[in-house]
């Protein structure tokens, strides 16, 4: 399946979106591991460990299943206000 991840904060260095091809039964942890491999050259793997994935309604757990053509957001540690 194809999952599109919208970049925020320090991940913006990668552009606005990252597209990942994952197995059909992939969950958020699989997405995280797939991203980890792609981020090694950008020294963003530590930040990825501290980050969450979310859709427009909720922050997701690593056990949540991904859906084909889903658009998710990666949320590094926050600093609003």
């Amino acid at each position: 399946m194809l999952v599109k991840v919208q970049m925020f904060g320090a991940f913006r260095v990668l552009g606005d979106y990252l597209e990942l091809t994952l197995p059909d039964d992939a969950n958020v942890l699989d997405l995280r591991l797939s991203m980890q491999r792609q981020l090694e050259e950008f020294e963003l793997t530590e930040l990825l460990e501290l980050s969450k994935f979310a859709d427009e309604k909720a922050v997701l757990a690593d056990s949540d299943l991904c859906k084909n053509n889903q658009i998710l957001a990666i949320l590094p540690p926050v600093s609003g206000g």
């Binding site: 980050s51 969450k52 922050v59 997701l60 757990a61 690593d62 949320l75 540690p77 926050v78």
Partner: peptide, 12 residues
């Protein structure tokens, strides 16, 4: 520089 912040919690 991006400001270091607070890690979020998920629902799970």
């Amino acid at each position: 520089e991006w400001v270091k912040g607070h890690a979020l919690c998920s629902h799970g």
